[in-house]
């Protein structure tokens, strides 16, 4: 009994560490992070590329199997796997697009711009043009001179004070994969949290931003 459970434990561990590095699992992680983060994260170009290739492979497998009249159950299992992978991919891209739609002006004038894929940048450009035109003709062009900027409240504003920005100090749930150790939450060093592996934390996104970008911590 004892040896049996030990053996099962090891294989489970092995399977788990193996499972954590598959592309589906990586995509799931990227998707979860993207969904939970208030701002847009870096586009996982290689991962998306690989996932699309695998999806295509799965599609071919399903086609082949249904062509030579294999077991329906097996086909539907493959199909389910395929559907799940497709959903993840679509949802990942969708969440990003929705963030771009929401914060297009903010993204296009900050460093965040480099986190977009080439296609996303094109989309964001178009989005911004369309939005500008829309606001221009319905509001801005009808306002007095000096108040017509889309970025500034009036000509006397020194910086762009009309651009919607994501709320970075919102709280997020996060889990650290490895032990990060004592981590400073604010600039003054008053708040220090000891991040232990696999423990769940609720922290301000702003303070753990770097860890999320570096892949040391996952949002859930």
């Amino acid at each position: 009994m004892a040896s049996g459970s030990e053996e099962a434990f090891w294989t489970e561990e092995d399977a788990q560490s193996l499972a954590e590095t598959t592309d589906v699992e990586l995509l799931k992680r990227a998707w979860r992070n993207e969904k939970a983060a208030p701002e847009i994260l870096s586009f996982q170009a290689n991962l998306v590329q690989r996932s699309r290739e695998q999806i295509q492979l799965l599609e071919e497998t399903v086609e082949e199997l249904s062509g030579n009249a294999s077991d329906d159950l097996i086909i539907s299992l493959y199909q389910m796997d395929l559907d799940r992978a497709l959903f993840l991919l679509r949802s990942y891209l969708r969440v990003r697009l929705q963030k771009i739609e929401k914060y297009m002006l903010h993204i296009s004038k900050t460093q965040l711009w480099n986190r977009l894929s080439e296609q996303e940048q094109k989309f964001a450009e178009k989005c911004t043009d369309i939005m500008e035109k829309h606001l221009q003709q319905s509001v801005l062009a009808r306002l007095p001179y000096g108040y017509q900027s889309i970025l500034k409240q009036s000509i006397s504003s020194e910086e762009d004070d009309m651009v919607p920005e994501p709320q970075l100090d919102t709280f997020v749930f996060c889990k650290s994969k490895g032990s990060v150790g004592a981590f400073q939450l604010d600039d003054t060093g008053d708040e220090i949290v000891d991040l232990v592996a696999d423990d769940l934390y609720v922290l301000r996104y702003k303070s753990i931003k770097g860890l999320v970008e570096g892949g040391q911590i996952d949002l859930v």
Binding site: R90, S91, Q119, K122, F123
Partner: peptide, 15 residues
């Protein structure tokens, strides 16, 4: 949006 999806060759409005 449609031109983004056709560039990607993936319909994002389903699923």
């Amino acid at each position: 949006l449609e031109s983004y999806m056709s560039e990607l060759d993936l319909d994002l409005t389903v699923d």
